[in-house]
């Protein structure tokens, strides 16, 4: 069984909708995941099952895609609710861990 989705992730998604100027509501569902309704789309967000190299599953109806972290989760959600969003074509290299 996967862990429940932390409150901080729920808050982040709520604040993200506001930051993107997208009207929507987010609620926990009976399965322990989240349901986000915005732009006429119902998006389901859940923890990935154990044993998968991903942390999240996100998508509409049966079309779920796995993402490995919150950065990917936000990208996936915004792509579904904001038609003007274009994913950044560059990556930020990891900081050197030490000087």
């Amino acid at each position: 069984m996967s862990a429940a989705i932390p409150d901080c992730v729920l808050l982040l998604l709520q604040e993200s909708l506001a930051a993107w100027r997208v009207r929507g509501v987010i609620a926990r569902n009976a399965a322990g995941g989240l349901e986000l309704c915005a732009a006429g789309t119902l998006i389901e967000i859940a923890r990935a099952p154990e044993g998968l190299p991903f942390r999240w599953l996100v998508g509409v109806a049966e079309r779920k895609r796995p993402v490995s972290g919150l950065a990917g989760l936000l990208r996936a959600v915004r792509a579904l609710v904001d038609p003007d969003f274009r994913a950044l074509p560059v990556r930020i290299a990891a900081l050197p861990l030490a000087p």
Partner: peptide
């Protein structure tokens, strides 16, 4: 993910990994 805060049932043991996307780094390490 790093284990500093144990998750109740999250035992995937996987680290955070960047999403596979084309492009280059905005700054090089």
């Amino acid at each position: 993910v790093s284990g500093a805060v144990p998750a109740a049932a999250d035992t995937t043991g996987e680290g955070l990994r960047p999403e596979p996307r084309p492009g280059r780094a905005s700054f090089p390490a």
